[in-house]
Design a protein around this nucleic acid. Sequence first.
DNA 1: CATTTTAGCTAACACGTGTACGCTCAATGT
DNA 2: ACATTGAGCGTACACGTGTTAGCTAAAATG
Lengths: 206, 206
Amino acid sequence: MTGIRAQQKEKTRRLLIEAAMNQLSAEHGYASLSLREVAREAGIAPTSFYRHFQNMEELGLSLVDEGGLALRQLLRQSRLQIARGGSIIRSSVTTFMAFVANQTPIFRLLLQEKSGNSRAFRLAVQREVDHFTAELVDYLVAEQHYPRELAELQADAIVRIVFGAGADAIDADATERQRLTELTIAQVRMVARGADAIRQLGRPTK
Amino acid sequence: MTGIRAQQKEKTRRLLIEAAMNQLSAEHGYASLSLREVAREAGIAPTSFYRHFQNMEELGLSLVDEGGLALRQLLRQSRLQIARGGSIIRSSVTTFMAFVANQTPIFRLLLQEKSGNSRAFRLAVQREVDHFTAELVDYLVAEQHYPRELAELQADAIVRIVFGAGADAIDADATERQRLTELTIAQVRMVARGADAIRQLGRPTK
DNA sequence: CATTTTAGCTAACACGTGTACGCTCAATGT
DNA sequence: ACATTGAGCGTACACGTGTTAGCTAAAATG
C-alpha cells in the first residue's frame, strides 16, 4: 500500500533536492542554480523536473525547510548536552558551530536567503530564526527566571551574535573556527552578564 | 588639462555605476545583474561596457567601495553628534539605521555580498566591516578606557548586533524600524553593561 | 596640420536558459 | 483483463546572455 510508484517518485524527488544541495557551493549560490543542471545531476530529463516542482523557487523553499529542520535537530542535540550537565552556553555555541562546519551548504543557503532577493525565501528563513529565538526566550524565562521582556532582548542579541559568528565561520579553517567559537562564547557570556546587571537594577534591593 | 575626454569617460563610468545601483532592488540582486541591461540603462552599447570595466565583477567591487565609503561618512557624521553631546550609543545606532533606510540598495549589497558567492566580494565587504569594528575598538579604548582585549570582544559583539538589526530593518516600515532602533540601543547598552561587569571582575577592588 | 589614441558603435557568434508539446510504457484502479 | 493514470523522455522554440572583431569620429599629441 506504500505505492511502489509514489515511492519511486519520492526517491527522485530526493535526488533532485540532493543534486541542488550539491550544486550549492561557495562560488555557486541558489540564485545561479539552473534547472537543467540540477536535472542533469539528478539523472533525469530537464522537463521531468516539472513532475516534482512547479518552479525552481519551489525547490528552493524545500531546501530552506530541510535546512530549518536540520537546525532544529541541532537545537535538540544541544539541549541534550545541557541535560546531562555542562555549560549551556558552551554546548549551544559549540553545536551551532559544528552545524556550520558540517552542513556548510545548508547554512550558507539560510544565511544568503535571509537577506536574499525573494520575499518568500526571506520569510521562510526568518520563520526558522524566530523559532530559534523563541526557544531561547523560553529557556531564559523558565530556567533563568528572567522577566519576559528582558529575556527577549537578550535572546535576540544572542541569536544575532551567534548567527553573525556562524557567517564568519563559513570561510574559516578548523583553527580559526575554534577561535571564533571561544570568542562567541565569551560574547554570549558578556551579554548574559549585562542582562543580569539590568535585572538587578529592576529590583535593586535583593 | 582636466582632459575633456577623460572627463566624459568618468561621467559615463558614473552612469554605469548608477545604472547598476538602480537595478539593485529587493527582488533583483547583484548576482542577477546583467551587463546588457546595465549598459542599456546607462545609455551605451553593451560592448562599450568593456571600455570601463573588465568584468561585471569589477563593477560590483566598485559598488562595494562606494558603499563602504558612504558607511564611513556615516560614521563621521555619528561622531560629530557625539562631540556636541548626547548618547554615543543612541546617535550611532540612529544614524546607522538612517543609512539602512536611505541607502537601502547599497546596504543590501554589502549585506548580501558579505556572505555572497564571490570570494573577492566577501573580502571587500569584510574589510569595510573591519574598519567599522576597529574604529569602535579605538573609541572604547581611548574614551572608555577598556583594556584592548575586552574592547575588541565588545566591539565585535556590538557590530554583529547592529548589522543584524540593519538586516532586519531593510524590510521594515518606518514604525517597525523605529522599534528596531530602540531595541538595538537597548541591546548595545546591555552589552556595554556586561563588558563593564567583566572589567570590574578584572580589578575587583576599585 | 598630421598622426595617434580611444570611447562608443554595429554586427555577429556560440551558448545556456526555461518551458510547451506530445509520446512511451509501467504501475495503478476497477 | 482492460482502461486510466502519470513519471520520464526527446524534440523544438524563443530568448537573453557574455564576448569578439572591426569600424567611426572626435579628442589628444607632437
